[in-house]
């Protein structure tokens, strides 16, 4: 088994002729909380969607280079199987509005046949909701619909839904960008507690968030990895001026 959850070598990606990623080379160790930082428009979300091939749904994509996830070239495996193992949580909370809170979390487990009995499913739903610190808030209204929840609660519900799929890698695309500080802290606490169970790759444009949660960070700027390394090392003594500027909020 590879030591790395993700290995990317010289990844170039163009969308309709516009080069978004320009020779990205990156490795993410298993069971770490990896934060990909960068200003808006640097290609972070595109990179994230490349890892589980959600980028395939975008028109006009041209890609070159090697992307290995969990030791396998992503273009040598079934994309649906890949997405079951590498689940993405988007920036915008997107629970399924026609399903109850319980069914939202239970759906991936049902589809992927992760559990066999109703009891196991109940336990899994509870585990996922507890992991995102939502259980206490919704345990009496599991049959309610997500529109009854606040934006932050909905985002945590989406995170619980992703966890219930039992992924090996969790991709988070600025998961706290649209929610309040209290919910942001809860999500960050949840992420820290997930380290031992899943590899988390999160993108953010907020350096202070990376400081709070990351084990390992990389800075993506204009489609290029400018600097990467253990979080404390990069934050305490950045080697590149661009990193310094980003951390100061000047980028």
């Amino acid at each position: 088994m590879s030591l790395y959850a993700v290995e990317v070598e010289d990844l170039h990606l163009r969308i309709k002729g516009v080069e978004i990623l320009r020779g990205v080379t990156l490795r993410v160790r298993r069971n770490t909380l990896f934060v990909l930082m960068g200003p808006s428009g640097s290609g972070k979300s595109t990179f994230l969607r490349t890892l589980n091939r959600l980028i395939d749904f975008v028109d006009g994509v041209e890609l070159s280079g090697l992307v290995k996830v969990l030791g396998q070239d992503i273009y040598s495996v079934d994309p649906y199987d890949l997405r079951r193992r590498v689940v993405l949580v988007s920036q915008e909370p997107n629970p399924f509005p026609h399903m109850t809170i319980y069914d939202n979390v239970a759906l991936p487990a049902r589809l992927n046949k992760i559990v066999r009995t109703k009891r196991e499913l109940d336990d899994l739903v509870r585990w996922a909701l507890e992991k995102v610190m939502l259980w206490e808030e919704v345990k009496d209204r599991l049959k309610s619909y997500p529109h009854a929840l606040s934006g932050g609660q909905r985002q945590r519900l989406c995170l619980a839904r992703a966890l219930a799929a039992k992924p090996e890698i969790l991709l988070l695309d600025e998961p706290t960008a649209n929610i309040d500080p209290v919910n942001t802290i809860k999500i960050e606490e949840s992420l820290k507690s997930l380290r031992d169970e899943v590899t988390v790759i999160m993108v953010t444009h907020m350096p202070h968030q990376a400081v709070r949660v990351a084990d390992h960070v990389a800075l993506l700027h204009s489609g290029v990895i400018v600097e990467e390394g253990p979080a404390m090392e990069v934050f305490m003594s950045p080697k590149k001026e661009v990193t310094n500027e980003f951390l100061r909020g000047a980028l």
């Binding site: 997405r83 193992r85 988007s90 997107n94 629970p95 399924f96 759906l107 991936p108 589809l111 799929a165």
Partner: peptide
């Protein structure tokens, strides 16, 4: 909404 399509696909649904 595109966000729901993405949610379905990112959970591995075909």
């Amino acid at each position: 909404p595109e966000s729901l399509r993405e949610a379905a696909m990112s959970l591995g649904m075909n």
